[in-house]
Amino acid sequence: MLCQKCHKRIANVHFTRVVNNQKVEMFLCEQCANEEGQMGFEAPLSVSEFLSGIMNFGNSAPYVNLASSDIVCEKCGMSFQEFQKIGKLGCSQCYRTFGERLKSILKRLHGSAQHNGRMPKKVSESIKISREIERLKELLNEAIKNEEYEKAAELRDRIRNLEVK
């Protein structure tokens, strides 16, 4: 059989790659196969295949019985079974929809399920505000306990102002 690309040399490599979820098989000579590989298009390694391997591992665990209870994301229509097959999620809502099942996968992948890095400015400000509110509420309780009503009133106003934000 001749190489399907150059049609000159004998094909001795069975080349498979996934293009848009479609498996494409080709019989190539060694040189063309190398060039295909070097062009940087989908190398034979597949992260999602590897991933779905990890995720299916969760399948056998007794606490997740998927056959009887598949969840579907309301926003994008992705089902948990579909996710396990392709290893990718459909939208940000999926993370909430698949909750605990996803959390155990994330722990397995990263050894952690708590973000520790940067956050968008808007988010970090709102987190700062909610922490400040928590702090002031504690002071307010303290003030009421000590019958410092003037101080309590002032704290209450400050909390109200922050809550508006």
């Binding site: 992260v47 999602s48 991933l51 290893g87 990718k88 999620l89 940000s92 993370y95 996803l102 996968i105 994330l106 992948l109 990263h110 399920a113 708590q114 973000h115 520790n116 890095g117 940067r118 956050m119 968008p120 808007k122 988010v123 987190i127």
Partner: peptide, 22 residues
């Protein structure tokens, strides 16, 4: 407005990129 979660950080299509997305 980025997709961001307090616990999981920046949300990505593939769970292998979640968090910092870095």
């Amino acid at each position: 407005r980025y997709a961001f979660d307090d616990k999981y950080g920046y949300l990505t299509c593939c769970p292998t990129n979640i968090g910092t997305g870095m």
